[in-house]
C-alpha cells in the first residue's frame, strides 16, 4: 500500500522534468480558456472569458482592483477551491489540452505543474534551504544530494544564490522583502513546473527589489510560461510579451504588449492605460 503511494510520488517530478527537455514551442497555446463564467457565491466574478496564453512567454493581466484578474489567475491552479462558495458556472480552462476542472484531474498534480508566487511574500518560517527543498520533500524526495542540487539550481535560477549561499540554513524570515519574494520564486521553480503564476509579486517591494524581480521574470521565461497579475502598468509594459486587460469581470482586450500600450482597440483600454481611471 505504501509502496504504491511512494512510487507514484517519485514518478511525478520525472514526468515534469521530461517536459523541460523538449524543445520550447512558443506557438503552442499553453492555457486555453473557453467562455469561462466564475462565481463567488451569488457574485458573478468572471463573465464569459475566452483567451489563450502562449507558452514560454510572459502574459500580464492588468486592470483596476476587483476586475477579476487575480481570480482568473487562481483558477489556473484551482486555488479558488480553497475558498468556500466559489464555482465555475460555464466554460473550460484547458492546460496542455486537459480540462482542469475535470474530476479526474488531481489538484495536487496540477499545482505541481502550475506554480504560484503570491502578492505578499510568504516564505515558511523555516531555513532558506528547507523552504526551497519543501516542494520536493513533500513529494517524498529524501536524497540529500539531489536536494542540495535542486536548492542550488533553484536559487541560481531565482538570482539569489550569491546573496544567500553562506546562510542557507538561517531563517528565511531574516531576509529582506525582495529576497523573501525571490525565495518564494525559487521555491516555486524547485518543483519544476511548466507554468508559474505571479499574483502582483512586486506590490510590496521597493523599486530596486522590483527591478531585480522583473529581471528574473525575464530570465525565467526561457524555461517557463509565466502569467503575471500586476497593478503597475509600467511593469506590464517592461516585462510582458502579451497583455490582457480586464474590467468588471470581463476581458476587454488582449494582444501583444506593444500593441495594447501603443494602439489599443478598445476605448476603455486606452482610458485605463492613459491613467484616466483605475
Amino acid at each position: 500500500m505504501n509502496a504504491t503511494f511512494e512510487t507514484r510520488m517519485d514518478t511525478l517530478p520525472q514526468a515534469a522534468r521530461g517536459s523541460q527537455q523538449g524543445a520550447p514551442d512558443t506557438s503552442d497555446p499553453m492555457i486555453e480558456i473557453d467562455h469561462l463564467d466564475f462565481y463567488y457565491g451569488a457574485n458573478h466574478a468572471l463573465r464569459d472569458i475566452s483567451l489563450q496564453i502562449p507558452g514560454h512567454q510572459v502574459t500580464a493581466f492588468i486592470g483596476p482592483s476587483g476586475c477579476g484578474k487575480s481570480t482568473l489567475l487562481r483558477c489556473f491552479n484551482r486555488m479558488n477551491d480553497l475558498i468556500e462558495g466559489t464555482r465555475i458556472g460555464n466554460g473550460q480552462i484547458r492546460i496542455h489540452g486537459i480540462d482542469i476542472s475535470d474530476p479526474a484531474v488531481d489538484t495536487i498534480a496540477l499545482r505541481r505543474q502550475v506554480g504560484m508566487v503570491f502578492q505578499k511574500s510568504n516564505p515558511f518560517p523555516k531555513s532558506i534551504y528547507e523552504n526551497i527543498a519543501y516542494g520536493l520533500q513533500i513529494q517524498g524526495v529524501r536524497d540529500r544530494r539531489r536536494l542540495d542540487e535542486v536548492v542550488e539550481k533553484s536559487l541560481r535560477g531565482a538570482a539569489l544564490w550569491d546573496e544567500v549561499k553562506d546562510r542557507l540554513h538561517t531563517s528565511a524570515l531574516g531576509l529582506s522583502g525582495g529576497q523573501q519574494q525571490r525565495v518564494c520564486i525559487a521555491r516555486a521553480i524547485a518543483v519544476e513546473p511548466s507554468i508559474i503564476l505571479m499574483d502582483e509579486p512586486c506590490s510590496a517591494l521597493d523599486p530596486i527589489a522590483t527591478a531585480k524581480v522583473e529581471e528574473l521574470i525575464h530570465e525565467l521565461k526561457k524555461n517557463y510560461t509565466i502569467v503575471i497579475v500586476t497593478h503597475n502598468m509600467q511593469q506590464a509594459g517592461r516585462c510582458s510579451d502579451m497583455t490582457a486587460f480586464f474590467y468588471l469581470g470581463q476581458l476587454i482586450e488582449m494582444g501583444k504588449t506593444e500593441k495594447i500600450f501603443t494602439n489599443p482597440v478598445q476605448k476603455q483600454t486606452e482610458d485605463y492605460i492613459s491613467g484616466r481611471f483605475g
Binding site: A16, H96, I98, A109
Partner: peptide, 14 residues
C-alpha cells in the same frame, strides 16, 4: 499530442 505534452497530461490526470 507531442511527447512532452503527453507526459504532462498524464501527470495531470494522474
Amino acid at each position: 499530442l507531442k511527447g512532452r505534452d503527453r507526459k504532462i497530461s498524464e501527470a495531470l490526470l494522474n
